[in-house]
Simulated scan of single mutants.
Amino acid sequence: MTDPTTPSSGWPDLARRDLGGAVVWANDEAFAARQNLVAPGPPVFDPTTFGPNGKVYDGWETRRRREPGEDVAVVRLAVPAIVHDLAVDTSFFTGNYPPEVAVDGLGLDGTRHELLAVSPVKGDTVNVFAVRCRYPVSEVRLRILPDGGVARLRVYGQAAPDPALVDALGVVDVASLELGGRVTDCSDRFYSSPENLLLPGPARSMGEGWETARRRDDGHDRVEIALACEATIAVAELDTSWFLHNAPARAGLRGRTAGGVWHELLPRTDLTPDTRHRFVLGDVPPVDAVRLDIHPDGGLARLRLHGRPTAAGRAALVARRSGPTPEDTP
Rank of each mutant, 00 (worst) to 15 (best):
F50S: 13
E224L: 10
Y156P: 00
H84Q: 12
D124F: 14
V118G: 14
S138G: 15
V223P: 04
E211Y: 06
P296E: 15
L108E: 01
P47M: 12
V155N: 00
R141G: 02
S138M: 13
L179T: 03
Y156C: 03
N96P: 02
G307T: 08
H277C: 07
G170I: 07
V171W: 11
L244N: 11
A117I: 09
V140H: 03
R268P: 10
F93L: 07
I144P: 10
F50Q: 13
N27S: 07
E195A: 14
V23D: 02
G252S: 15
I225V: 11
A32D: 04
H220K: 08
R189T: 15
A15T: 05
S138C: 13
H277V: 05
V83D: 07
D162L: 01
N196L: 01
R143A: 05
D328F: 14
T329E: 10
V44F: 14
P7T: 01
S241K: 15
A33L: 14
V121Q: 01
S138L: 15
M206K: 15
A164T: 12
Q35N: 11
R302L: 06
P12T: 03
G307Q: 06
R314M: 09
N127T: 00
L145V: 13
A301H: 02
H277P: 05
G181H: 05
D28W: 10
D293S: 04
H306A: 12
A73R: 09
L177N: 03
Y135A: 09
S9T: 08
F243M: 03
A15N: 06
G260K: 06
P7S: 03
V126C: 06
F50V: 11
A258E: 05
S322A: 15
T94F: 10
T325N: 12
D46F: 14
V287P: 00
T5W: 12
L116C: 05
G209L: 07
E139S: 09
G123A: 03
G323Q: 06
V88H: 07
A289P: 05
A251C: 09
G207Y: 14
R112Q: 14
W262M: 08
E208W: 13
L244C: 09
E114A: 12
A258Y: 02
